[in-house]
Computed example of a mutant assay.
Amino acid sequence: MNEMRLIVDPPARGTWNMAVDEAILRGAADLGVPTLRFYGWSEPTLSLGYFQKYEDRRQHEASKECACVRRASGGGAIMHDRELTYSFVAPVRDSRSEETTRWFDLFHETLIQVLATWSIRAHLSGKPQADSRQEPFLCFQRRHEVDVIVDGNKVCGSAQRRHQVAVLQHGSVILQQSACAPELPGLEEITGHEISAGHLIDRWKDLLKSTFQSTYQEVPLTDKELESAQEIESVKFAHSDWTHKR
Rank of each mutant, 00 (worst) to 15 (best):
residue 166 A to D: 01
residue 135 E to F: 06
residue 216 Y to D: 09
residue 205 K to V: 14
residue 129 Q to A: 15
residue 103 W to K: 07
residue 220 P to Q: 14
residue 12 A to L: 15
residue 164 Q to T: 12
residue 120 I to A: 05
residue 143 R to A: 15
residue 166 A to G: 05
residue 120 I to R: 04
residue 148 V to K: 10
residue 229 A to G: 14
residue 78 I to Q: 04
residue 52 Q to Y: 10
residue 159 A to Q: 14
residue 212 F to P: 02
residue 56 D to I: 01
residue 68 C to Y: 00
residue 109 E to A: 12
residue 10 P to S: 10
residue 186 G to Y: 01
residue 191 T to D: 02
residue 161 R to C: 09
residue 222 T to K: 08
residue 183 E to F: 02
residue 109 E to K: 14
residue 133 R to G: 12
residue 33 V to Y: 05
residue 102 R to E: 14
residue 126 G to D: 11
residue 13 R to K: 12
residue 134 Q to N: 05
residue 168 L to N: 01
residue 118 W to A: 10
residue 223 D to N: 09
residue 15 T to E: 14
residue 246 R to Y: 10
residue 183 E to C: 10
residue 59 Q to L: 10
residue 185 P to G: 03
residue 68 C to S: 09
residue 52 Q to E: 13
residue 216 Y to I: 04
residue 19 A to P: 03
residue 219 V to L: 11
residue 52 Q to K: 09
residue 4 M to N: 02
residue 86 Y to P: 04
residue 221 L to N: 09
residue 115 L to E: 05
residue 182 P to A: 03
residue 102 R to Y: 13
residue 45 T to R: 01
residue 204 W to E: 01
residue 123 H to C: 08
residue 99 E to H: 11
residue 31 L to D: 11
residue 122 A to C: 07
residue 32 G to E: 09
residue 17 N to W: 06
residue 119 S to E: 15
residue 97 S to T: 04
residue 133 R to A: 13
residue 131 D to A: 06
residue 112 I to E: 08
residue 132 S to K: 09
residue 200 L to W: 03
residue 101 T to V: 08
residue 171 G to K: 10
residue 246 R to H: 10
residue 14 G to P: 02
residue 27 G to K: 11
residue 94 D to S: 03
residue 177 Q to D: 03
residue 230 Q to I: 08
residue 93 R to A: 10
residue 235 V to A: 02
